[in-house]
Amino acid sequence: MDYSAHSALPMIKCQDLKIHYGDHVAVDSLCFEVGKGSVYGLIGPNGAGKTTTIKAIATLIEPTYGEILVDGIPVLHQPEEARRIIGYMPDFPPVYDDLRIEEFCDLFAHAYGLDRNARAKKVEECLRLTDLMDKRRALCKTLSRGMKQRALLAKTLVHEPSVLLLDEPAANLDPKARIDLRNLLRRLASSGKTVLVSSHVLSELEDLCDAIGIMRKGNMALSGSLEEVSASAAASRVIRIELVESFPNLQNLLRESSSVSKVDSRDERIFEITHSGDRSEAASLLTTLTGAGAKVCEFHLKQSKVEDLFLEIESEDSSEDANR
C-alpha cells in the first residue's frame, strides 16, 4: 500500500501499527507513508488516535505491535537515533513558566549539543521565523496560549530536525498567525523538511497539505493526495445539469440511461444526477440530451469536497455510537 505524497522516498513509514492502552485499542492496523519534503495532514475527530500515532512516531509511546521507520531508522529499536532528526510539538503547549522565551529555546539548543555561538544564532533565527523577536525577553508564563504555541514551535525548530511532528499546531492561533504558520510550514517543506501535522479542523489543513489521512477510531479511513481522497470520495459522481429553458422530457431521458442512478431536480431547469459511468459515458449522455432538443448551458462534475467526506465519516461515527 503506497499512500506516499509527491516525493518517492518515504521519510515516515508506519506499518501495521497497533497501540493498546490496557483494554482500549487506540490505534489499530494503521499503515501510511509520508514522502520526504511533503506536508501530510492527519485528520480525524477527537479520539481518533492522531495524538497517539504522533507520539508513537516521536518515540514517546511504545507500539503494541507494528513498525515505524523515520528516515529508515526503526524508532522502536533505535529511538535515540530517531530522536535526533525528529522535532515534536504536542497538542497543548507546556513551557517552562519561569524561563524567558530565548532561555527556553537556548536550553534545548544546548541540550541538542549546539555550542554557545551556534546557539545564539540559531535561537535568534527561530525566534525570527516564529515572529517572537519582540517577546524574546518575556517570561513564558506571561504569554498567551497562541504565543506559547509559537515559542514551542521555535523550540521544536532549534535543532534543525528533518522531520517535524506537529500535533494540532494551529489550535490556539488567531487567523493571521494561522496564515503565518501555514506559510512557515510550506517554506520548511520546500527546504526539504518532512511535516506531519494533525488537526480535527479540516479547513486548517486543506491549503497546507500535499496529502492527508483521515483517521477514525484508530484506523485510517482514507489516505492519499487531496485529489485522490476527493476522487475516492466520489465513486459515483454527481453531475450538475442546467438548461436554458425547461424541457419536459428530460427526466425520462436521464432515467433511461443505465449509468444514471438518481435524478434530483431543484426546479424545471436545474438537475443533479448521480452518475456511475466514466467520462465517455458522460459525454454520450450529453449528446443524447442535446440531440433530443434540450438546450444545455451547463454540464459539469460537481466536486465532492474533502470536508464533505470528513463530515460523512464523522456522522458515520456518531450514528454507530447512537445505534450502540
Partner: peptide, 16 residues
C-alpha cells in the same frame, strides 16, 4: 509536574 504536562518528554527526546 513535568511528567504530567509533557515537559519531561521534551527532555526525553534530547540526545543527552
Amino acid at each position: 509536574e513535568e511528567k504530567e504536562s509533557g515537559l519531561l518528554d521534551y527532555q526525553r527526546m534530547t540526545p543527552m
